[in-house]
């Protein structure tokens, strides 16, 4: 019986008041609810509330002045701009890498697959100094790019981009990969039998199916990049108005004991992150719905 087997869908509609449960024979509701809410409040909600309350010490004019100071504005431009570009690069290469991992066999594939998660596991500070060593003027890559081509990467905005590409890569690969794996070969067979060329099949059949996951991966990489600190500060050079990211502005203000100023900038970032979180949730819902729909 369909409806009894999927009580979630039906129970979900029931309106019994927030955090009031519908009947279940499984115990532990009150205990786990109390513990979860208490821990969440203590660790997450109270500290977040502190940011909002601290900012309210400023009048709106003062707040506005702090968050739109030229140096802060320049940092937004760098943080958001570089994050956007890095996420876009990750979307392209992440899709490609996911495709290669799912569709082709080649030696060392298992190792490549395992190492894709390296940026999740490698501490950001380590990534930061390693990338700096690579791209500095005397580094393995830097000596060619900077020494021969004359393009400065380390200690310049380009360095920020390199670090953000590094930390964002797994997001796209790991959101797209499972969707690619679950694809039925029948879809492509059908497209081919209807006369579509390989590119057309990709463009009109596969890409629309992958798009929600690809966008989710993009948004996740973007969100992570905007807040990133550890891997960036080593390679960025941190030149005010040129290569200074927003999280660094917050640190600098803190070091000058300008708590209110730091909090104001933090609030802007926090609000932006929350909006992004909602977007990501919506994208993931879309993604799982469209997978469901394609079956």
């Amino acid at each position: 019986m369909a409806f009894a087997l999927t009580p979630n869908t039906l129970f979900g509609r029931q309106r019994t008041g927030t955090f009031r449960k519908t009947y279940s024979v499984l115990p532990g509701f009150n205990l786990s609810l109390g513990y979860t809410l208490g821990y969440l409040t203590l660790i997450v909600l109270i500290p977040i509330a502190a940011v909002f309350l601290k900012t309210s010490e400023l009048s709106f004019a003062e707040f506005w002045k702090v968050v739109t100071a030229p140096r802060v504005l320049a940092s937004y431009k760098l943080s958001f701009g570089a994050s956007m570009i890095a996420a876009a690069i990750n979307a392209v290469f992440g899709l490609m890498l996911a495709w290669v991992l799912v569709r082709y066999s080649f030696p060392g594939k298992r190792i490549v697959d395992a190492l894709v998660d390296l940026p999740f596991a490698l501490p950001t500070a380590v990534a930061g100094i390693a990338l700096t060593a690579l791209y500095a003027r005397n580094g393995w890559i830097g000596q060619y790019v900077e020494g021969v081509l004359g393009i400065k990467i380390a200690f310049a905005p380009a360095g920020v981009l390199v670090a953000l590409v590094f930390i964002g890569l797994p997001f796209v690969v790991r959101t797209v990969q499972p969707i690619l794996e679950d694809l039925e070969t029948e879809l492509e067979e059908a497209a081919a039998s209807l006369g579509a060329r390989r590119w057309q099949t990709f463009r009109y059949v596969l890409l629309p199916i992958l798009l929600p996951a690809l966008l989710t991966g993009f948004a996740l990489a973007f969100a992570r990049a905007v807040g990133e600190y550890g891997s960036v500060i080593f390679i960025a050079g941190n030149i005010p108005l040129v290569s200074e990211i927003t999280p660094l502005i917050i640190i600098t203000k803190l070091e000058q004991y300008d708590y209110v100023g730091a909090t104001a900038v933090a609030l802007v970032m926090l609000l932006f992150s929350f909006v992004l979180l909602l977007v990501i949730n919506a994208l993931q819902a879309w993604s799982s719905r469209s997978i469901g729909g394609s079956r």
């Binding site: 129970f11 927030t18 509701f29 500290p47 977040i48 660094l248 933090a266 992150s273 979180l277």
Partner: peptide
């Protein structure tokens, strides 16, 4: 394992720390 109103909200709250920049965590 349980159904209750506000579940979606709670799930979002649990995810919240992922979207906060580490620097802001320290600040908080």
């Amino acid at each position: 394992k349980h159904d209750f109103r506000g579940k979606q909200l709670l799930t979002t709250f649990i995810d919240l720390p992922f979207s906060v920049s580490p620097v802001i965590v320290g600040l908080m």
